[in-house]
Nucleic acid binder design. Structure first.
Length: 479
RNA sequence: GGCACCGUCGCCAAGUGGUAAGGCAGAGGUCUGCAAAAUCUCCAUCGGCGGUUCGACUCCGCCCGGUGCCUCCA
């Protein structure tokens, strides 16, 4: 059974068939670099990173492009606010993007084009549209004439007539129709500008994706992704431009991820209810955030809350601990599990792939992983129940599945240490005191002085420390 | 107002025309001096009302409740 994915254009789940044999071209709208990324940006990045990883896992030769919008009104505005050149604004936030997204274990796309690096390509497309009579110039601006494109509204399910009627669009005398959108914007004095056949200016937002998608992936490519909020007008306009230019549909499958909500409301700048990734990282492990983000289907809205992150942390810790315990048990039998799992098979992998093949159903994939973890734990407690080579294969499969989802990027030890660090930042625990208490308790236990032993444990519990007596000694962690 | 989408156990979250995955929390058991961890068992009839059907939570209609898009937005 092959991959099926939901195509926003047809609103149906479709069999995925690449345009060119084994090659897949995928373009995802990145971010406009004028501020720090929030959880919503994180979700989009995680969703398409997971798609990217999984397509490669299926054996496709994937070419993944994700852009940076590094020139637009918001950037110019931010530069003015910060009193810095606009190039400094984009430099700063691109660096922040890599830092924040890197922690989410987002793999690098094959190409990361920037709008400002592709002005000639955009100008060429705009010129072509003007030549074809599908765009017009107006006082130094160039607009796309939406009425010239018969399929307008198909992706977003909108009717141009109705859009026109209910147009709340700004009144702009330069435009022939309120629905027309800018391909090229005349620059005001002091604003960044590029020379063009229509005078100095800068590109409109939509044209960059059309130009860069075409340049790197071809006139028609396989998958175009982005957040649901980009469907209209951004992607609708992109189709109009690209198809208007070439006469060909630019994209075969459109994929859109759902929003991150806070109390059922969309997380957004204007509502002010957003959390930046770097804020989250102050209290939560990035991989916990990633697990949270893939714990529901990518097209559904997902409610961001402290409780949900805590749940995700418990799940992730359980995975790491189970993998760690199984790995140790195997090692004790002289079986060494490789850190990087090889290509795995087996019943579990088949179920995992079936889930992922069903429009990237990560929630079901995780359910299978939980079941497999339970089986693994059962073995760890009773190692004679299965041959260790079989267990090694199962462990490998579980790790591989997790890594396909961008999880298990650390060793169990690293993960525990990072989690400890994070939690201890708030508690500021006195490690020496904890170890002294544990020693006191163990001394009491040796003397069967259970009252003292329990008192020590209660005291530790009050500090937020949980202890665990194992065969190898007493271990402790922060609750 | 127009167009979409959603409403599944206390919480999170899959799913389906033939009687509901998984996680958290909870109850009980095993293990443990006691715990913790792990494991086992238990724990929902799917917003409401009609209809279609041999059979619906899954299809249709209406109602109630919630959200999104229609302006920049992942």
């Amino acid at each position: 059974m092959g991959l099926k994915l939901f195509n926003s254009l047809t609103r149906k789940k479709e069999d995925f068939v690449p345009l060119r044999d084994n090659h897949v071209g995928i373009y995802v709208c990145g971010v406009t670099v004028y501020d720090y990324c929030h959880v919503g940006h994180g979700r989009a990045a995680v969703v398409f990173d997971t798609v990217f990883r999984y397509l490669k896992h299926l054996g496709y030769d994937v070419l993944y492009a994700r852009n940076f919008t590094d020139i637009d009104d918001k950037i110019i505005k931010r530069a003015a606010e910060e009193g810095t050149p606009w190039q400094e604004v984009t430099r700063k936030y691109i660096a922040a993007f890599y830092e924040d997204m890197g922690k989410l274990n987002i793999a690098a796309p094959n190409v990361e084009p920037r709008a400002t690096g592709h002005i000639p390509e955009m100008i060429e497309m705009i010129a072509s549209l003007v030549d074809q009579g599908k765009a017009y110039t107006s006082d130094g601006d160039v607009f796309y004439s939406v009425t010239a494109f018969p399929g307008y509204g198909r992706l977003s399910g909108k009717n141009p007539q109705e859009l026109m009627a209910g147009a709340r669009v700004d009144v702009n005398e330069k435009k022939r129709s309120p629905l027309d959108f800018a391909l090229w914007k005349k620059s005001k004095p002091g604003e960044p500008s590029w020379d063009s056949p229509w005078g100095p200016g800068r590109p409109g937002w939509h044209i960059e994706c059309s130009a860069m998608g075409r340049k790197y992936l071809g006139v028609t490519f396989d998958i175009h992704g982005g957040g649901k909020d980009l469907i209209f007008p951004h992607h609708e306009n992109e189709i109009a431009q690209s198809a208007g230019c070439s006469g060909q549909p630019p994209v075969k499958y459109w994929m859109h991820n759902g929003f991150v909500n806070i109390d059922k409301e969309k997380m957004s700048k204007s509502l002010g209810n957003f959390f930046t990734l770097r804020d989250i990282y102050k209290c939560h492990h990035p991989e916990v955030l990633r697990l949270f983000l893939i714990s529901s289907h990518y097209r559904s809205p997902i409610d961001f809350s402290e409780k949900n992150l805590e749940d995700a942390e418990k799940v992730l810790s359980r995975f790491y601990e189970g993998i760690d315990a199984a790995t140790r048990e195997l090692a004790s039998q002289g079986v060494i599990a490789p850190a990087k799992p090889e290509r795995a098979g087996g019943a579990f992998m088949e179920k995992f792939e079936a889930a992922m093949n069903d429009d990237f159903n990560t929630a079901v994939a995780l359910a299978h992983m939980n079941e497999e973890l339970r089986a693994l734990n059962t073995w760890t407690k009773a190692p004679k129940s299965q041959p260790s080579q079989d267990v090694l294969a199962r462990l490998n499969a579980l790790k591989q599945a997790g890594q396909l989802l961008g999880l298990f990027s650390r060793s169990p030890g690293e993960f525990q240490a990072e989690l400890f660090e994070l939690k201890n930042r708030a508690l500021g625990l006195d490690t020496k005191k904890i170890e002294a208490l544990i020693e006191e308790r163990n001394a009491a236990r040796r003397g069967k002085d259970w009252t003292t032993a329990d008192r020590c444990r209660d005291e530790l519990a009050k500090m937020g420390v949980v202890i665990e007596d194992t065969a190898g000694g007493t271990e402790w962690k922060i609750k």
